[in-house]
Design a protein around this nucleic acid. Structure first.
Length: 598
DNA sequence: GCTGATGTTGTTAGT
DNA sequence: CACTAACAACATCAG
């Protein structure tokens, strides 16, 4: 307690002095020389005989002063110990987190941070449910760190404004984070790396969000990604199994986290209120965020060994009342669950099972490899999340139809199966993969002829597991814009759901207005006699919308449009190649006369 | 440049 | 209930 008084006086004073020095040194570009234990080669020079000597000068002089000051300071308080910061973005977990382990390799102070800009909350395509999931995940992370005598520092602000401050205030020497291959993240991280370099902070990054190092995968494949799943499998087979997960963090390994008295005021995990979100904006809390919950669900699902081994995605039901798949996707998206941990635990179950297990693409392992596939093409393809400028994407003349888009988004299409799915999406934040197929096909090539980019943005807002590469990739798949081309295979908004849920219990659950509709009309309520509609208090056109399109007509005309668009894409591709060829020919014909002359 | 097989998971009618 | 053929017919890839 007495020592605390001491600190209160000295810490701000020395912080102030160091701050002044640092800012001056940054300006004079001498900053690196302060790193007495981290002298980089370019600070050495060679004399004529080849002997190395340290370019000692004014910079070295200042460096020594700082070293002395640091020494004095560390005598009074351990706060000026060198600090290692781990930056949580995705990867919100303590298990299989190699970058986090790196942070603790050489360490005095350890500060795990998460950066959140509350003023940007409204501008990001993130619905209330996903915010809640994120906050729950952060809370769980903070709890787990607390058990190890550490805490999570949630810092309000933008990375490029936050880092200069904390690098100085905390005497940061090392910054670690998990590699993120999404375009916005690449851009952000490059800037942070530059900043760190300028301020003499060593950045260490590790791959653990994906099974493989996507960057190296693409490099090995001559800069491009495989365009089919099978080609991806072939490539992965050549490369071999992914790296094994690293051990879970169970102690701070001699490092310590300085937790100030006002930690909870300054660095606490925000609640929804602070983000301007009302609890009432959220749906029922069916899937809570966090590593603890992720591991619990994984263990629970993996304990059902025959279910795991016999898993076939196409045979799981999109419209069951309880999810028919694992619903681990939101946890994988935020990295509450390590994909490598899941992958190897899964292989364990396969290996110990007596009997044949299913195989990719339909197996559970196959699902993880689909994730890997879309991450890879998403990384290697320019403008992956849009049609224009995207070399993989068919150019299709989608119509601009805000009314159709809104009806679809707000579950008002008049097709109960579609509207029930969209309701589940908006309320609960998760829908089955095949349900995503049904509504995506309906919005694009199937019925409404609205661009997949709009649908992708709606999914991005409402899905707990919204994952940039997977979302864009699958929307191109379903709209037959890329990867999938059998556009004549159209999901029927009536027949598809009916084949698995004849009574329409799923529709009754999510669209209570149709609860009393007789089963024979539940998928096509507009066909119910008016008398029946009146009897059950659900008149179509008044209590529930009439279908906004005639599916058979829409399907037919859309097939024609697809056919035309495909032909045009073909000819424009041919033109591109013939243009190339003809230009080559012109070049050679221009050259040939000279050649014949010589 | 052609051929034939393949492609995560369509629909309907019929056995 | 599980399976198959016809429907109409796409792109991509290996050989």
């Amino acid at each position: 307690m007495e020592r605390n008084k001491y600190y209160r006086f000295f810490i701000p004073l020395f912080n102030f002095i160091l701050l002044l020095m640092n800012s001056q040194l940054v300006f004079s570009n001498e900053f690196y020389l302060l790193e007495s234990d981290n002298i980089q080669e370019d600070h050495f020079e060679k004399d004529e005989r080849g002997n190395m000597f340290w370019d000692f000068g004014i910079s070295g002089f200042i460096g020594r002063i700082k070293t002395v000051l640091l020494g004095i300071f560390s005598f009074f308080g351990k706060d000026m110990k060198e600090t290692s910061v781990h930056w949580f973005r995705k990867g919100l977990r303590l298990h299989d987190n190699p970058a986090l382990m790196k942070t603790l390799e050489k360490c005095g102070n350890f500060r795990p941070i998460f950066i959140l800009d509350p003023w940007f909350v409204k501008n990001m395509h993130v619905g209330p449910n996903r915010w809640r999931f994120l906050l729950q995940s952060l809370k769980d992370l903070d709890n787990s760190l607390n058990k190890l005598h550490s805490r999570l520092f949630v810092i309000r602000g933008k990375p490029l404004e936050v880092f200069p401050k904390i690098f100085q205030q905390w005497n940061v020497k090392t910054l670690t984070y998990e590699v993120d291959t999404e375009p916005y993240a690449i851009e952000r991280d490059e800037k942070v790396d530059q900043l760190a370099k300028r301020m003499g902070v060593t950045v260490k990054k590790e791959v653990s969000h994906t099974l493989y190092d996507i960057e190296r995968l693409v490099m090995k494949n001559n800069g491009s990604a495989p365009h089919t799943y099978q080609a991806m499998l072939t490539m992965l087979k050549k490369i071999g199994p992914p790296p094994k997960p690293v051990a879970s963090l169970d102690s701070l390994k001699g490092c310590s986290t300085p937790v100030e008295e006002n930690h909870d005021e300054k660095y606490n995990v925000p609640d929804l209120k602070e983000l301007g979100i009302h609890e009432s904006d959220c749906g029922p809390n069916l899937y809570s965020g966090g590593e603890t919950e992720a591991l619990r669900i994984m263990n629970e699902k993996l304990s059902n060994k025959s279910w795991v081994c016999k898993f076939e995605k196409p045979k799981t039901q999109p419209n069951s009342l309880e999810p028919s798949t694992t619903v681990l996707s939101p946890y994988l998206k935020f990295g509450c669950l390590s994909v490598r941990t899941f992958y190897y635990r899964l292989l364990d179950v396969y290996n110990k099972y007596t009997g044949n297990c299913t195989k990719p693409p339909v197996s559970l392992e196959g699902q993880l490899l689909w994730r890997e596939f879309f991450y890879t093409v998403g990384y290697a393809t320019p403008n992956f999340d849009q049609m224009k400028g995207n070399p993989l994407c068919k150019q299709i003349p989608w119509s601009n139809n805000p009314e159709f888009l809104e009806a679809w988004t707000k579950a008002q299409t008049g097709f109960p199966f579609i509207d029930a799915i969209m309701t589940q999406l908006r309320q609960e934040g998760w829908i089955h993969h095949l349900a995503r197929h049904a509504v995506a096909c309906f919005l694009t090539r199937g019925d409404l002829w609205v661009s997949w980019e709009h649908g992708m943005k709606v999914f991005e807002e409402f899905l707990l597991d919204a994952d940039w590469s997977l979302n864009a990739g699958n929307w191109m798949w379903l709209s037959a814009s890329a990867f999938f081309h059998q556009y004549f295979r159209v999901y029927s908004p009536v027949a598809f759901g009916k084949s698995m849920d004849k009574n329409g219990d799923y529709i009754r659950k999510y669209l209570p207005v149709l609860k009393k509709m007789p089963s024979e009309y539940i998928y096509e309520p507009w066909k119910a006699p008016l008398k029946v509609q009146q009897q059950i208090g659900c008149v179509i056109g008044k209590d529930y919308p009439k279908p906004i399109v005639d599916h058979d007509e829409a399907r037919k005309s859309n097939l024609e449009k697809m056919n035309k668009a495909y032909k045009e894409n073909k000819t424009s591709n041919e033109q591109k190649t013939t243009n190339k060829r003809s230009s080559e020919e012109t070049v050679s014909s221009l050259l040939s006369p000279k050649k014949t002359k010589s």
